[in-house]
């Protein structure tokens, strides 16, 4: 064997959120963690991001809700969930007994919604952190998504920051012209980490071609098809913020994990591909450790940011954040 036998894959995120490894499972693809437990050793995962949770129960969208697309899928679940109180009551005790941290994904239609959900999760045993899904229409702003407006994204992040001591991740939407001001606003508002990206907006046409396929018309595209987009966004965000970035977008093999690390992510979430291959996340943990061993590393952190442009000044310097995109 070359290099150190023991590889430390652990990762320390702000506010004491310690992960055994940087392989997480993405919200919406892993339910509440219990669903796959018969075929996956879920306690080995870096963390589980649970299904999007709202203040009140939501029925979700009319089916069909999912359809396969080339190297991907569209979904329009519509945030079906039983509401935060029911989630805490039903799964909190289970999560408390788990080794794997559970990060609750939170969605809302107003800043008050997000704040109230965060308050109800604060201090709940078994809840290790919050991931804000800000790709939701902001009813107070005429339905404009929080995620596409730097001011709104910052405002909701700041409000939730004040409401909870829990580690706070904010999940970026790719459906924007320039992600950088939004990422900066989220960082300035006190987020502990950024997860990127949520799904890309898309549609499919029904057989017979008389109407769109999905019951909700619009869906979110995920899977390997979106990886180049997610890579680009992580690459851009990593150059303008100092908080950790957790990459999401079509992770299907170790090479994808290494690519995301190279453009500045410190961890990844596996999502759509685990529908086909539920054992993939756990396998990636082992493969990442093997890769570190092969490279003679005792940690994977030297693999982070290797493909980013060289900085002339330390990362925390304000000049580094001001770097503008030049095509």
């Amino acid at each position: 064997m070359i290099g150190p036998a023991a590889v430390d894959l652990s990762l320390e995120l702000p506010r004491g959120l310690r992960l055994d490894n940087p392989i997480l499972v993405a919200s919406g693809t892993f339910g509440y963690g219990v669903e796959y437990s018969e075929v996956v050793d879920i306690q080995r995962l870096g963390a589980i991001c649970c299904k999007g949770t709202t203040l009140h129960a939501r029925v979700g969208n009319r089916p069909p809700r999912v359809t396969e697309t080339p190297a991907g899928m569209l979904n329009s679940i519509g945030l079906q969930n039983p509401g935060v109180d029911a989630v805490v009551r039903k799964y909190g005790p289970t999560w408390q007994g788990w080794h794997v941290p559970v990060i609750v994904n939170v969605a809302g239609e107003s800043i008050d919604d997000y704040v109230e959900v965060a308050k109800r999760l604060d201090g709940v045993p078994g809840v290790a952190g919050i991931e804000l899904n800000i790709s939701c229409p902001n009813v107070g702003k005429g339905g404009l998504q929080f995620a596409i407006d730097a001011e709104a994204a910052g405002a909701v992040t700041a409000a939730v920051r004040r409401a909870t001591e829990l580690p706070l991740l904010v999940k970026l939407s790719p459906n924007v012209a320039d992600i950088r001001p939004i990422a900066r606003a989220i960082e300035a508002a006190g987020a502990d980490a950024i997860s990127a990206i949520n799904t890309l907006s898309g549609i499919a046409v029904a057989p017979g071609r008389r109407r769109p396929l999905l019951g909700n018309v619009y869906g979110g595209l995920s899977g390997p098809a979106i990886k180049p987009v997610a890579l680009r966004i992580v690459y851009e965000v990593a150059q303008v913020v100092d908080i950790p970035i957790i990459a999401i977008g079509g992770v299907a093999e170790l090479g994808d994990v290494l690519d995301y690390l190279a453009v500045g992510a410190v961890a990844v979430q596996v999502g759509t591909v685990l529908f086909a291959d539920p054992t993939l996340p756990v396998r990636l943990i082992d493969e990442l450790a093997d890769e570190c061993r092969r490279l003679g590393l005792d940690s994977y952190l030297p693999l982070v940011g290797t493909a980013l442009p060289k900085r002339s000044s330390p990362r925390s310097a304000s000049s580094a954040k001001g770097v503008e995109y030049r095509p």
Binding site: G28, T29, F30, G31, E35, Y36, V39, K51, G60, P63, P64, R65, V66, T67, M73, N75, I77, Q80, F275, P278
Partner: peptide, 16 residues
């Protein structure tokens, strides 16, 4: 029958 994602109850894709 319904379009299905995970088939284990995680994704909520296949509801009636």
């Amino acid at each position: 029958e319904q379009n299905m994602g995970c088939a284990v109850g995680a994704c909520l894709g296949c509801v009636v």
